[in-house]
Design a binder for these strands. Structure first.
Lengths: 145, 145
DNA sequence: GGAACTGATACTATATTAATATCAGTTAAA
DNA sequence: TTTAACTGATATTAATATAGTATCAGTTCC
């Protein structure tokens, strides 16, 4: 069971770079180099982030992408859902049919509880909070004691 | 993000059938029909359960498979790990390298906490507990009030 | 006008998951 | 003692998801 796909991981890292450069347009090339993300893959990913309205773009020379939300308002949960779909038990519950297999339905109830916990936790982790952690690690800011 | 693959889901259901028939050999054909699991797929899956030492088999006519452990000792966590591998954040942390991408490492710390919660919860859910729930639902047993 | 950009889209590669097929060997029972 | 009902082992295919690449048109700045 893999929690984060590379795409989600890349998205988080791209947004961290953009959050660190709020108010400025940053080119895909720059992000690609800084975060070591394959350029064309990143391009596609950024277009998805635009569709998710987390960033905006500017075409042409000196163009690029810019974060368009408060980093504290962008949660890892949103990103996981945007790129990997909602946390789900198995397909059966998606179809909302009366399960042919009751076992899954029994399990489902249990797992729904777990899902709620996981979602609540991922909701707490934001680009803003990650960036602050990063800055502490990199020594740009002294951690509050 | 899908929590259970079909294989794990099938394994749980097969074990529920076997737990309800403790002490008896049940054929793959019977399980397949009862739980609506593709026969050949189930065959392969049962062999994995044998390797995991959760069931034993008997060849020949009147043969089949039989559960070989106390259903309360078989957790969904074990099955997820057996069929899908351990819950992990992303590949990077597996390799135990010093992450090129620090963001993931920051995230990692947070997600490790979430993983512990999820694992603890899946550990509590056993074939035995699921079976008891099923029996209550199906009215074989009165729920304790 | 040309270099530095994004938009859009099509394509390929790889891995994982799901399902199917085949044949040899074992056992119970008619 | 033959045959039907089984598992063991393994090979193959199909479907889907993930990851990565390529191309060309259009925009903007200088």
């Amino acid at each position: 069971m893999k929690v984060l796909t590379k795409k989600t991981d890349y998205a988080i890292r791209a947004l961290l770079t953009l959050a660190a450069s709020r108010g400025r347009y940053v080119s895909a090339k720059t992000i690609s180099e800084e975060q070591d993300i394959p350029y064309q893959f990143l391009r596609g990913l950024l277009q998805e982030l635009i569709r998710l309205e987390l960033i905006v773009s500017k075409e042409g020379a000196q163009g690029g992408v810019m974060i368009s939300r408060d980093p504290d308002e962008i949660s890892v949960k949103q990103l996981i859902e945007g790129f990997q779909g909602k946390v789900q038990v198995s397909e059966c519950m998606f179809r909302k049919q009366i399960c042919a297999n009751r076992a899954n339905c029994v399990l489902r109830h249990e797992i729904m509880r777990i899902e709620q916990v996981v979602n609540a936790e991922f909701d707490k982790i934001t680009i803003g909070s990650l960036l602050r952690n990063l800055e502490v690690i990199q020594g740009h800011v002294q951690p509050a004691v």
